[in-house]
Design a protein around this nucleic acid. Structure first.
Lengths: 131, 131
DNA sequence: GTCCGTGCAAAAGCTTTGCAGCCTT
DNA sequence: AAGGCTGCAAAGCTTTTGCACGGAC
C-alpha cells in the first residue's frame, strides 16, 4: 500500500483471530497453516481471505512477511560468499563487496545450539540511480 | 539432488551458453531473462529447459539461487528487528535473539552509495533436534 | 446506508514434469 | 547403442482477483 493512501480498516473476527494466532506462535506460519487452524472456528473460511488479511495486517504494520523479495527466483554465477544490496524501488540486486564478517559467524555460533553452516546478509534501501 | 547420487552430466550448447551469460552479467538474472537472451540463438528454446539447466548448474555447484528458501511465504507477528536461524533439514525457522548489530549497518553504509534502510541476516544450518 | 470484509471460484504467475525424439558420449 | 538433454504442452503450486452477499460502523 502506498503511504499516501489512508485506508480505513474495519475489524473482523477472522482477522483478529489470525493476529492472535500469529502472536501466540513462534513457528513463522504459512498462509496454509493459518487456514487449517482457523477452519475449525470458521468452517467456511477461504484461503483468499487469509491472504487478504495477511496483506492487511502487513499494511497495518502488525505482521511481517519473511522471505519476501521478488516473486521469481534469481540466479548468479558468483558462488563465493558475498552479501547483497537490494533496491526497494527498482528491485535490482547488487553484489556487495563488504568483507564477509567472521566475527558475526563466531558470535552467532556461541549463542545457539544450531550447527551453523553459513549465513546470508541482505541490505535493503534505495540505489543511487533511483534517488 | 542428494549427495550420494552420482549423476552423470553431459554437455549441451544451451547449458554452456547459460553459464557464459550468467558469468558475464552482474544483474542476478531470472529464468525469464536468460530465456529471452537465449531465444535469439536458440529460437526453439523452452523455459522448461532453462529451469532444468539452472537446476543442473546448481547441482554442479556453478550457480547459486538467491531468494531460495521455502516455496511459500511465511509470516510473523514479531515486527521488531531480529535475525533468523533456518534449519536446512526440517525447514523450521527460529527467531535468533542475537543483538542486532549496529556496527554492521554503519560499516555497510560507509561502503556504498546505497541509502540503506535496514538489513536482514539469516543463518543456515542444522537445528538441535535434527542432529 | 455505506462500503469494507468474506466466501467462492476462476485466474494469474512462476516452476516442474511427462513424453517422444535428438544429441552427446 | 545408451541415456542424458530438448522442445512442447500440460500440470502443479502458491497467491491474487472479480463478484455478489453479509457485516461493521
Amino acid at each position: 500500500m502506498a503511504i499516501q493512501e489512508k485506508k480505513k480498516f474495519r475489524t473482523s473476527k477472522q482477522r483478529n483471530r489470525m493476529l492472535q494466532l500469529l502472536r501466540a506462535t513462534d513457528s513463522h506460519p504459512t498462509a496454509e497453516w493459518l487456514y487449517e487452524k482457523l477452519k475449525m472456528e470458521f468452517p467456511r473460511l477461504s484461503l483468499g481471505t487469509v491472504y487478504r488479511n495477511l496483506s492487511l495486517l502487513i499494511d497495518m504494520g502488525l505482521v511481517k512477511k519473511i522471505h519476501f523479495g521478488s516473486s521469481f527466483d534469481r540466479f548468479e554465477a558468483n558462488t563465493a560468499p558475498h552479501y547483497h544490496l537490494i533496491c526497494e524501488r527498482c528491485g535490482k540486486i547488487f553484489d556487495f563487496d563488504l568483507p564477509v564478517d567472521k566475527d558475526i559467524l563466531e558470535h552467532a555460533k556461541q549463542r545457539t545450539t544450531f550447527a551453523i553452516r553459513y549465513h546470508k546478509i541482505e541490505f535493503y534501501g534505495i540505489c543511487e540511480s533511483c534517488r
